[in-house]
Design a protein around this nucleic acid. Structure first.
Lengths: 112, 112
DNA sequence: GCAATACTTCAGTGATCGCTTAAGTATCTG
DNA sequence: CAGATACTTAAGCGATCACTGAAGTATTGC
């Protein structure tokens, strides 16, 4: 049973590659087969399969094989964990903008 | 000049490590020195410095040295790019389209 | 001046990453 | 059944990763 930390590690890692993000963007338009996902990417089918494996390990993507075709689709749960993590620190991202100067000033009485 | 793709690659990568996320969480409470950031982490100072470098290359963290102390703080811009990317695909993550399609199908017997 | 402090830099190491090629295994289609 | 299709699996390779430890360089306080 993966912890939130595991999910965050794997999901952020999965999204850190532009080929994998392209796969995710394609899947956001609806389910697709492995070859459909591979078509626009300039790499071997084997490489694409490996990217899909990374996405599956993160939980972002789920797939099912029918006959000889594996169909992939998005799974929302891991992204919700990521969004939640970001939301928890959003105020800090937005609120503490460019205050180093102020802190240094209050600490040293001047800006160096 | 880094493209959005570069920013996404580096920011997602930066956040894919739990030690780096711990640094980010600490910085969300306010600026901190390198040693302050290192204190709760069970690794060498050198390792922490390398994590901070990764965060700086992504643009998430900015730092300034005064005397012998380097003070780090969050920079919101890269996170906004990440939030924007997620927002663009949120509907798909949440499965609204799929469910809407199913609902319409079960109601009208077809997708309009 | 001199020791403690706060990093900084560098070389090395084992693990993981993103890919390739090659050789599989099922599953359709005619 | 034969050949095409859609993956699947495995080995290997150069690059990057997350560290460590050792040796540096500025500052600061006494």
């Amino acid at each position: 049973m993966p912890t939130d930390t595991d999910v965050l590690d794997r999901t952020f890692h999965a999204l850190s590659d532009s080929s994998r993000r392209a796969i995710v963007v394609r899947l956001s338009e609806g389910p697709a087969s492995v070859s459909e996902l591979a078509a626009p990417l300039e790499m071997s089918l084997s490489a694409v399969v490996q990217h899909i494996e990374v996405l599956q390990k993160s939980g972002i993507v789920r797939s099912e094989k029918v006959g000889r075709v594996r169909t992939c689709q998005l799974e929302p749960a891991p992204m919700r964990v990521v969004e939640q993590w970001i939301a928890q620190h959003r105020q800090a991202w937005e609120g503490r903008f460019d205050r180093l100067g102020e802190i240094l000033k209050s600490t040293y009485g001047r800006t160096p």
